[in-house]
C-alpha cells in the first residue's frame, strides 16, 4: 500500500509528476497553461540564456558562458560528424534542438519542487516519434526503395536473410519505443527514488542515512540527466546514419 499511518510515513513518490493547471483548479485541456507549460518555457528560457545571451559578446576569447555554449556546439557537431558522417551535418540544428531540450529539461527537473517534463512518456514519445518519422521519411526520400536494403542483410547467407529481415523490421519499429521509454523511465525512476528516500527522512533515526542517500542519488541523477540526453542524441545520430547510408 502507498501509505502507512502507523509510522507517520507518507509516500507520494508520483505526485511530482501530476500535470496540473497553472492557474486555478479546472480540468487540463490541451491549451491550458499547466506546470508542463511552465517548465517547458523555463527550458526554452535556459536555452536562450546560454546560447543567445551567453554568446552575445561574440568574443574571440570566450567568457565562461560562451565557452560552455561553444563546447556544447562542438560536442554535438562532432558527434553528428563522427556518427552520421559529413552529410548528417545538414540536420545539425534539429539534432542540436533535441539535445538542448532534453538536457535542459532533465537538469531543470532536478530542481526541488520542479516538474520533469522528460519523465513523461507523452513528451519523450513525441520526441522519439519525431526522430523515427523524420528518419524514415528522410531515408525513403533520399534513397527510395534502396532504403529497404537496411532490412536485407546482404552479407548473411541467402537462407538466413528472410529471417534476419523479419528481425530487422521488428527491431526497426521497436526503436521509437525503446528510444522514448529509456529516457522517461530513467528520469521517472530516479526522481521517484529520491522522493521515497525523502519520505524516510521523517523518521529521526533513519533521517541521516536518508539524507545521505538523497545526496548520493541526486549526484547520480545529475549524471543520468546528462547521459540520457547524450544517449538520446547519439541514437538519433545512429538512426540518421541509417537513413543516409542504408546499405549494411
Amino acid at each position: 500500500m502507498a501509505t502507512e499511518e502507523s509510522t507517520g510515513l507518507v509516500f507520494h513518490p508520483m505526485d511530482q509528476f501530476i500535470v496540473r493547471p497553472l492557474f486555478g483548479d479546472g480540468p487540463v485541456h490541451w491549451y491550458t497553461p499547466s506546470n508542463v507549460t511552465l517548465w517547458l518555457a523555463l527550458a526554452v528560457l535556459a536555452v536562450w540564456l546560454l546560447f543567445v545571451v551567453g554568446t552575445s559578446g561574440r568574443a574571440l576569447i570566450p567568457s565562461r558562458i560562451q565557452s560552455m555554449a561553444e563546447l556544447t556546439y562542438g560536442m554535438v557537431h562532432k558527434m553528428i560528424e563522427d556518427v552520421s558522417g559529413k552529410e548528417g551535418l545538414r540536420y545539425f540544428p534539429y539534432v542540436f534542438t533535441l539535445f538542448c531540450f532534453i538536457l535542459f529539461a532533465n537538469m531543470l527537473g532536478l530542481l526541488p519542487k520542479s516538474f520533469t517534463t522528460t519523465s513523461h512518456i507523452a513528451v519523450t514519445g513525441v520526441l522519439a516519434l519525431l526522430v523515427f518519422l523524420g528518419v524514415t521519411i528522410l531515408g525513403f526520400v533520399r534513397n527510395g526503395a534502396h532504403f529497404l536494403g537496411l532490412f536485407w542483410v546482404s552479407s548473411a547467407p541467402l537462407a538466413l536473410r528472410p529471417v534476419l529481415a523479419v528481425i530487422e523490421v521488428i527491431s526497426y519499429f521497436v526503436r521509437p519505443v525503446s528510444h522514448s521509454i529509456r529516457l522517461a523511465g530513467n528520469l521517472l525512476a530516479g526522481h521517484a527514488v529520491i522522493k521515497v528516500f525523502a519520505a524516510f527522512a521523517a523518521i529521526t533515526v533513519i533521517a541521516p542515512i536518508s539524507i545521505l542517500a538523497i545526496v548520493g542519488m541526486f549526484a547520480f541523477e545529475i549524471m543520468v540527466a546528462v547521459i540520457q540526453a547524450y544517449v538520446f542524441t547519439i541514437l538519433t545520430c545512429v538512426y540518421l546514419k541509417d537513413a543516409l547510408h542504408p546499405a549494411h
Binding site: V19, V28, H29, W30, Y31, T32, S34, V36, T37, L40, A41, A43, V44, V47, W48, F51, V52, P93, Y94, F96, T97, C100, F101, T117, H120, A122, V123, V126, L127, L130
Partner: peptide, 18 residues
C-alpha cells in the same frame, strides 16, 4: 494533449532560437 501541444510549441521555439 496538453503536454504534446506545449512540447511542440517549446521545440519550435528552441529550434527557431537555435
Amino acid at each position: 494533449g496538453n503536454q504534446i501541444f506545449w512540447l511542440v510549441v517549446a521545440l519550435a521555439a528552441i529550434y527557431l532560437i537555435l
